[in-house]
């Protein structure tokens, strides 16, 4: 009976159009939802059973909507209040929260948005959401020591070709079709967020100490970092880079490596 009660409440609380509409829809199909509710929940002269469940239904939707507005502020600004509200209504039907932390409730928003009608009007929105998710992930990703130049200097030259670097746990690489970081910056300043002209964009998001940063990458640096992320050896990283820029790849990778060390993008030994 406890299981039946909980399943009934779950069904009504998460009904997209509210409890009354769910009951009315079920009535027309000849279902027993209303009878089950009447058996399970006591109403009174102040609020009937459906109105009482509806209090929880409203709180369910708006609590998660508020969390996702905080997680995706620029996506919200781009789509507008109504557009974002409708997106999340549809999203929660496809991806009801399944993790103990409400912080995970919006995990699948970027992919869901990519296949949603909202993206037709705002083609850069899925990439923007991907970037905002990366900012959230970098914020509380695992702490880890960073690889220092001194530690790297201790590696024997003959060991370099087989060396495998690892990215710091907070590093996120994003390749997309719009410079979406400009939209988030505008939203953070309280400025208007409007659709962008497309432009190939490669971003690295990371946390240094407790603050989250981002930086634009050129094609060669992005490919090299993506290879590092995949666990490639340094020789493989250089080989892949040379396919992009045969003349000068090794020097460019070496220059980039200096920056990675300075910014703490590589993980050191713990």
């Amino acid at each position: 009976m406890l299981a039946e009660t909980q399943r009934l409440l779950w069904r009504l609380i998460t009904a997209p159009e509210g409890v009354a509409a769910a009951l009315a829809g079920d009535d027309t199909r000849g279902g027993g939802l209303r009878a089950a509710l009447t058996r399970s929940v006591r109403g009174d002269d102040r609020l009937d059973a459906a109105q009482r469940v509806d209090i929880y239904a409203n709180m369910y939707f708006f609590r998660i909507l508020d969390v996702l507005k905080e997680d995706y502020p620029a996506t919200l600004a781009l789509l507008g209040e109504v557009g974002f509200h409708n997106l999340i209504t549809d999203y929660l039907l496809a991806h009801p929260p399944a993790h103990f932390s409400v912080r995970e409730a919006g995990r699948h928003v970027p992919e869901f948005l990519a296949a949603h009608a909202a993206a037709d009007a705002h083609p850069c929105a899925p990439d923007l959401a991907r970037y905002e998710r990366a900012l959230n992930d970098a914020f509380d990703a695992a702490d880890a020591p960073v690889l220092t130049a001194a530690a790297l200097a201790a590696v024997a030259p003959e060991a370099w070709p087989e060396l495998r670097f690892a990215l710091h746990p907070s590093v996120r690489l994003i390749e997309c079709g719009w410079p979406v970081d400009a939209l988030r910056a505008a939203a953070d300043r309280g400025e208007t967020v409007a659709d962008l002209l497309s432009a190939p964009t490669r971003l690295c998001v990371w946390r240094h100490e407790l603050a989250v940063f981002h930086r634009h990458l050129d094609a060669l640096e992005f490919v090299a970092l993506a290879d590092v992320e995949r666990g490639a050896t340094f020789a493989e990283v250089c080989a892949a880079a040379s396919e992009l820029n045969a003349a000068d790849a090794s020097r460019q990778v070496a220059d980039a490596l200096v920056g990675w060390l300075e910014r703490g993008w590589l993980r050191g030994d713990s």
């Binding site: 299981a3 709180m59 399944a98 409400v102």
Partner: peptide, 10 residues
């Protein structure tokens, strides 16, 4: 219930 969370105290 059913592997899903309402994120509320029911």
């Amino acid at each position: 219930v059913g592997g899903h969370m309402v994120h509320d105290l029911l």
